[in-house]
Structures are given as structure tokens and as C-alpha cells.
């Protein structure tokens, strides 16, 4: 997409400068042809292909960027001014500390984003995608961390004066580490 854009930009600007400074450039092509070639023939195929590709890519991401849609772990993410709380409705007895989301690596996580006050937005830049936490709605987003590690997360919808500091952390563990992490919380 980036290189395509660069090419189109260079093309349009090149034509502009050539038409301006090179005498007789493009004069043989009648104006209607200019418009049909540049205004219809050039953008339409690109746009159609891009849109259809994006539809399918979006469909793929919706399912958590994986073919395997069965093994999904649901995590409830609740935003409030100005922190995030996480809980695991399908893992009874587990407790998570505020502002830290423990997930198993290599498994699809379904975030259910909710809000207790104003609109927040759940975003972990390196895990892709974001979803707004709108009060009164439960929105879903699938993310997945392929490798264990720490990933920074932020609120990306302006939510008041504490917006800039509304960060959280995602810790992806291997399967054992994850079980330990969510149960270790209980023992603390």
C-alpha cells in the first residue's frame, strides 16, 4: 500500500510538473481522454482491488487472524477513568491485577470491552486492532500474541484529563506461565 501510494504520488506530481514546464507535453491527448484515463481507468481498478482485499483481510482479522476459531479465551476489559481492569469469565477463581493483562501466547484472545463511565478505546499497538469501550455496549475484538513477552497498551479515545496516563500492559506467557500468573494473583 505504501509503495503503491508513493508510485501514484510520483505519477500525479510528475504529470503536474511536466505539464507545467515541458512545452507541448500531453497536448496530443485530448482533454476527455486525460480525464477518462487518469480519473477513471487509473483509480477504479486499484480501488476495487484494494477494497475487496481489505474486506477479506478484515473478515480474517475479525476471526482473530487464525483459521482456528474454536480455542478462544474470553477476557473482559473494563475501562474507567483512568484505568483498565481485566477479568477471565471462563476461568473461575482467577483474578487479575489492575492495569495488567495476562494472556497465553499463541492463543486467540477475545477481548470484550466495556466501560463504566465514558468512551475508552482498548489498543495494544503491536498486537493490532483496537476496539472502543462504549458504555452500555460490549464490543468484541480478537487479538493474538505469537511470542511470550510484554506489550504496551493505551487508551486511544480521548476520555478526559487522565487520558494520557491511561496505559496498561499485556504480558504474554507460555501455557504454564499463564496458569501460574492468573492463579498466583489469587495467592498474593
Amino acid at each position: 500500500m505504501l509503495w503503491g501510494s508513493c508510485a501514484l504520488f510520483a505519477l500525479v506530481l510528475g504529470l503536474f510538473l511536466a505539464a507545467w514546464f515541458v512545452p507541448d507535453f500531453g497536448r496530443r491527448l485530448p482533454p476527455d481522454r486525460w480525464i477518462v484515463w487518469g480519473g477513471l481507468a487509473l483509480p477504479l481498478p486499484v480501488l476495487i482491488a484494494l477494497t475487496l482485499y481489505a474486506f477479506n483481510q478484515g473478515e480474517f482479522l475479525l476471526k482473530g487472524a487464525t483459521k482456528d476459531t474454536e480455542d478462544v479465551l474470553e477476557v473482559r476489559a473494563t475501562g474507567r477513568m483512568w484505568e483498565w481492569d481485566f477479568s477471565y469469565p471462563t476461568l473461575p477463581g482467577s483474578v487479575a491485577e489492575p492495569g495488567v493483562l495476562h494472556i497465553p501466547a499463541g492463543r486467540t484472545i477475545e477481548i470484550v470491552a466495556e466501560s463504566e463511565d465514558v468512551i475508552h478505546s482498548f489498543w495494544v499497538p503491536r498486537l493490532g486492532g483496537k476496539i472502543d469501550a462504549v458504555p452500555g455496549h460490549a464490543n468484541r475484538l480478537r487479538i493474538r500474541a505469537d511470542k511470550p513477552g510484554r506489550y504496551g497498551g493505551i487508551c486511544s479515545e480521548y476520555c478526559g484529563t487522565g487520558h494520557a496516563g491511561m496505559r496498561f500492559e499485556v504480558r504474554a506467557h507460555d501455557e504454564d506461565g499463564f496458569v501460574r500468573a492468573v492463579s498466583a494473583e489469587t495467592s498474593e
Binding site: F16, A19, W20, R27, P31, W34, G39, L40, P43
Partner: peptide, 18 residues
């Protein structure tokens, strides 16, 4: 909606060229 914009851009380019 990018297409009508492209049409205008190329109409302007054609105007300059001619």
C-alpha cells in the same frame, strides 16, 4: 469518493497540458 476527486485532478492536469 476518491474517483470524482481523481476526475477533477486529471481535468486540471489536462487544462495545464493544453
Amino acid at each position: 469518493v476518491a474517483v470524482p476527486t481523481a476526475i477533477q485532478i486529471f481535468a486540471w492536469l489536462a487544462t495545464i497540458a493544453h
